[in-house]
Amino acid sequence: MLPWSAELAGRLEEHIVSSELLRDNPLKDPHERPLLVYVPPGYDDEPGRRYPTVYVITGFTGHVGIWRNRVPYRQPFPETADAVFASGEAPPAIVVFVDAWTAHGGSQYVDSPGTGRYHSYICDEIVPWVDGHYRTLDAPEHRAISGKSSGGYGAMITPMLRPDLFGALATHAGDALFEYCYLPEFPKCVRHLRAYGGDIWRWWEDFNGRASFTKPEDMDLLNVLGMAVCYSARPDGKPELPFDTVTGVLREDVWERWLAWDPVRMVPEYAEAMRSQRAIWIDGGTRDEWFLDVGAQAFRQALLDAGVNENAIHFELFDAAHGGIDYRYPLALGWLCRNIAP
């Protein structure tokens, strides 16, 4: 395995997609976005053949360029995905790497007055664009979505909201059971904000005026601000934090708006959509710093309580923390492809 490159049996194609839904978004982020599309080996040999698709979305602070990152002794996901198809481990599929980055770190793949219409961008622009440019099987039973962390969160909620588009998902350590993954971070942020007079925008100005992540509070405050701008932005786009930044007292009305987006709590409302899914992969590390293994267990149980067929669910906990679990992605990819193949 060379540390700098690898030959693909398939092909990774680069595109720029102009989004009308993201044009003039609240954060003035680009409305033209990169899109990577992987086509499997043999795609050009059978011009009449159509393929299932798997959409891949990134975690918080991620953008489509991270899929090219190489870490020591591991291959990037496009290469490990290619190996899944080249080996015949799974039926061939088109894999779509979507960019939904924002200036505050991410979109959580929701429509928000604070960030823009990223859920609609994926569902109403990217999916039709891919179907129009590639030989896809244009039906939910042949379309899946996959991601890790915030990407895993997006993979959980997108099929709930749009079962007419997505019929399978894989969530790796996806954000769930918010009282465990988010709430414990709030008192840390209160402590951090003492240095900024309780004003998160003073921190934001400081953060943007220096090298990022050079202060210990940066990731904690970026995360809570990034979530607030997605889950609890006012109609004018200004995010409201779910706690008082000086006393730490929970602002119950704002916190309830966050909880309304918790996948565990969303399942009962969207039970029919989840029962329609052909395949649901759920996993997480047993040492996850945000207790997303616990969230994974709760999500699985919520699905079972909603009447989802247990045979449609692959659930697995494994020895790991939150990071370094990219080796799980091709495992889920192969399993998804076997379940969404025609």
Rank of each mutant, 00 (worst) to 15 (best):
G226N: 04
E217S: 10
W201G: 01
W201S: 11
G226L: 03
I200S: 02
A211T: 15
R202W: 04
L221C: 05
D220M: 07
D220I: 00
D218C: 04
R202Y: 06
E217A: 10
G198W: 06
L225G: 00
L222H: 05
N223V: 02
L221Q: 09
L221P: 09
M219N: 12
K215I: 01
S212A: 10
F207N: 01
T214W: 04
M219G: 07
L222Y: 03
W201E: 14
K215Q: 15
E217H: 09
E217T: 03
D218R: 05
S212E: 08
G226E: 02
K215M: 09
W203Q: 03
E217G: 10
G226Q: 06
R202F: 03
A211S: 13
L222K: 02
T214H: 04
W203K: 05
I200R: 06
V224W: 00
N223A: 07
A211M: 12
L221N: 09
L225S: 01
T214G: 11
G226H: 03
D206C: 02
D206Y: 05
E205D: 15
D220E: 10
M219R: 13
N208W: 11
N223L: 08
D218I: 05
W203I: 01
S212K: 11
I200C: 04
A211P: 06
R210W: 01
I200P: 12
F213R: 09
R202H: 12
W204Q: 15
D220G: 08
M219W: 13
L221A: 07
G226R: 02
F213S: 06
L225T: 01
G226T: 02
G226A: 05
A211R: 14
S212C: 04
K215P: 00
I200M: 12
G209N: 13
D206P: 03
G209Y: 00
F207W: 12
G198L: 08
G197T: 14
D220S: 11
K215L: 11
P216N: 09
R210Y: 04
L225D: 00
A211L: 12
D199A: 10
S212P: 06
K215G: 04
N208G: 14
N208V: 00
W203R: 08
L225N: 03
L222C: 13
A211W: 04
W204P: 04
E205Y: 09
D218H: 05
R210E: 07
G209Q: 05
R210D: 04
W203T: 01
L221S: 07
D206N: 13
G209A: 12
G197S: 13
V224Y: 00
L225I: 04
L222V: 05
S212D: 00
N208H: 14
W201N: 12
L221Y: 05
G198I: 10
D218F: 04
D218Y: 05
E217Y: 07
W201H: 14
D199Q: 10
G197L: 13
A211E: 15
